[in-house]
Nucleic acid binder design. Structure first.
Lengths: 255, 255
DNA sequence: TCGGGAATTGAATTGGGTTCATAATCCGCG
DNA sequence: CGCGGATTATGAACCCAATTCAATTCCCGA
C-alpha cells in the first residue's frame, strides 16, 4: 500500500527537480533558449522521462508559472486575513504584490509569455486547469476584502458588483507589471520607481471610489509609514532581511 | 532615376501583400499555426523572397503589430488635438482606445505575444526600433494632454512628474486589455462589459487625482452622453455605421 | 545585343521538440 | 526465491517548420 504513495512522492520530487533545473537554465540562458533535452540532461534523466511529467515544452512553462503563483497566492491570503480596517487590507494586497514582484522579477515575464494564446493553447488541458485553480485564491482574497468593505460601509459600490469594483485595482496592478517588463518603456519616460508609483495610484483610484477612510497619496511620509507597517505586521519574513542585506526592503530600496 | 523609386514602391506593396495574407492566415488558422511557407505560397512568392522582407517569423509578427499600432496612434492623435477641456480630452483617449480595441480585437492578443521577451528578442533590431517609433505618438499624445491639464490648472501634479501621472490611466487601460484577452478570467467574475467598466474606472482614477471638473462615474446617463458626444465629434467615421449595421457603436452595443 | 549586378527561387539544411519500440525495473504471487 | 506481467525509463529516430544559399532569372545601362 505504502509503495504506491512512496512512488507518488518520488514522482512529485522529480517534478520539482525538473522545474528547478528548468528555472536555473532559464536564468542562465534565457527563456528563448530553454531546451527540453538540456533540462532532462541536467537532471540526469532521459528526455522521455521528462515528457512523462510535461506533455510539451509549453506545458512545462505553465507548470513553472503555476509554481510561483502559489507563492503569490499565499501573500494575498495573508493580506485578506489581516485584522485591520478594509482600506488597509486592500492596500496591503497591493503591497504584497509589490513585494512579490520585487522578489520574483521573472514571474511576470514568464506569465506574460505563458498566458499568450500560443503558449497557453499548447499546454495540456489538465495543466491549464491546475494553473487556474492555483490562481483562484488570489482573486478570492481580493474579492473578500471588497465584500467586507461594502458590508462595513467603507465602500459604496454605486451600482457596480463587487467583482466589477475589484477589476479596477486589478487592472492597475496588472498593467504596471506589464509596463515594468516592456523593455525601455518606463525608462523612456523617466519613471524611477514604478511600484511605489503604483502604490500611489492605487490610493488615487480607491480614493476615487470613495473608499473610507480617504488617504492622501501625496503624503510621502504617511505612505512610507503605511507600507512599513504592513511589512512589519504581515511580511516581516520577507521585508526584514538580515543586516547588510537590505535589497528586499520595499521601503528603503525602491526597485 | 525613377526606376529605383518604382522598385521601392513595389517592395513596399509586396510587404503589404505579405502582411495582409499573414493576417488572413492567422484569422483562419490561428496565431499558433502560422507558417512562413504558407504565407509565401499564398502570395505566390518563394520563401526566400519573404525572408528578404522579414528576417524571421517573429520579425513578421512585430511588423504586423506595428501596422495596427499606426491606426491606434491616429485615433490618439485625434483625441489629443481636440479642442475641449482637458478632462474631456483625456477621457476621449480612453474612448479612442475602447473603440480601437473593439474594432481590432486581435490587436492586443498579437501585441501581448509580440512584446514577450521571446518574440521581441527574435525580431530584428531595425524592426523593433521601427515598432517603438510607431508607438511614440501614442504616448506623446497622452503626455500633451496631461501637460496642458497641469498648465491650465485643471490637474495638480502633487509632486509627481507628468509622465508619472499618465502612467496611472495607462496601466489601467493596459491591464484591462490584458484581462479581456485572458481566457475566462472576466467571465468567471461575471463582468459583462469590460470596456465600459474601464471607462468608469478611468473616471474613478482621475477623480482621485482631483482632475477638474470632477465627474460622477455612477451616472450612467451622463457617461453614455459623454461617450456619445466624443464619438460624434471625433470618431463619427468609426462609430456611426450605416443603418442596420450598429455593431460598432460603442454606446448601443457594449462589447 | 551583351555583361554583370541585383533579385528571386525552392531544394536542402538545420535544429530542436516529440514519439515510441525496446530495455529495465518493480511487484505480487506461487 | 524466482517467475511473469505490468509499469516505467530510455534515447535513437522521426518529424516538421524555420531558415539558408547556390543556382537561376531578371533587369538595366552600355
Amino acid at each position: 500500500m505504502g509503495t504506491k504513495e512512496r512512488r507518488q512522492r518520488e514522482v512529485a520530487e522529480r517534478e520539482h527537480l525538473f522545474l528547478g533545473k528548468a528555472r536555473e537554465l532559464i536564468m542562465q540562458d534565457g527563456l528563448l533558449n530553454l531546451q527540453m533535452a538540456k533540462v532532462a540532461e541536467a537532471c540526469d534523466y532521459a528526455i522521455g522521462t521528462l515528457y512523462q511529467h510535461f506533455t510539451s515544452k509549453e506545458d512545462l512553462l505553465v507548470a513553472l508559472a503555476s509554481d510561483k503563483s502559489a507563492i503569490r497566492a499565499e501573500l494575498f491570503e495573508r493580506a485578506a486575513n489581516w485584522r485591520a480596517p478594509s482600506r488597509e487590507r486592500i492596500f496591503s494586497v497591493a503591497v504584497a504584490d509589490m513585494i512579490f514582484a520585487r522578489r520574483h522579477p521573472d514571474y511576470f515575464r514568464l506569465t506574460q509569455y505563458v498566458t499568450t494564446e500560443v503558449v497557453w493553447g499548447a499546454a495540456s488541458a489538465t495543466r491549464r486547469q491546475a494553473a487556474l485553480e492555483i490562481c483562484r485564491p488570489i482573486g478570492e482574497a481580493v474579492f473578500r476584502i471588497f465584500h467586507d468593505a461594502v458590508d462595513a460601509g467603507d465602500l459604496d459600490p454605486r451600482g457596480l458588483s463587487v467583482a466589477e469594483l475589484m477589476v479596477g485595482p486589478w487592472t492597475l496592478c496588472l498593467g504596471m507589471h506589464t509596463l515594468v517588463h516592456a523593455e525601455g518603456m518606463l525608462q523612456q519616460y523617466q519613471v524611477r520607481d514604478p511600484y511605489r508609483l503604483l502604490m500611489r495610484h492605487v490610493h488615487n483610484l480607491i480614493n476615487g471610489y470613495g473608499w473610507l477612510p480617504l488617504f492622501d497619496p501625496a503624503d510621502d511620509v504617511a505612505l512610507d509609514a503605511s507600507i512599513q507597517r504592513i511589512c512589519d505586521e504581515l511580511f516581516s519574513d520577507l521585508c526584514h532581511a538580515p543586516a547588510g542585506c537590505t535589497e528586499l526592503n520595499p521601503v528603503t530600496l525602491r526597485s
